[in-house]
Amino acid sequence: MKSFIDIADFQHLDLRAGTVMEMRHLGSSLDLVAAEVQVDERVVAVLPASAAAELSPGARVVVATALHRLAAGGSIFTAFVVATLAPAIGVADGSRVL
């Protein structure tokens, strides 16, 4: 089946490699986790709780940064954890991905 999302959808995003430092659940009505991620600076990125269950501090991730602001659970987010990075991929925190 033809992919619904193609590479052009991501070309305008600022995707960065980073390391998860801390995580906290947003609350009972929000199955979401705020993850503090070291990119070139620390950003707080959000992701679904089910996706966060596969992460722990020290995990390498790809983060979409500089997004439009999202208010949720008393916080404002401008970053989203897109994917995990395999340990074998040795890119430095803050490196642009894609």
């Binding site: 009505s29 929000l30 199955d31 679904p48 997004l67 999202l70 949720a72």
Partner: peptide, 23 residues
């Protein structure tokens, strides 16, 4: 939900918040 927040704030001039998310 994020895209809708952006569209509402950009085009309708309001402020929007994600208040519930259940997987």
């Amino acid at each position: 939900a994020w895209l809708l927040v952006e569209l509402v704030e950009r085009f309708l001039g309001g402020t929007a918040e994600l208040v519930s998310f259940q997987e």
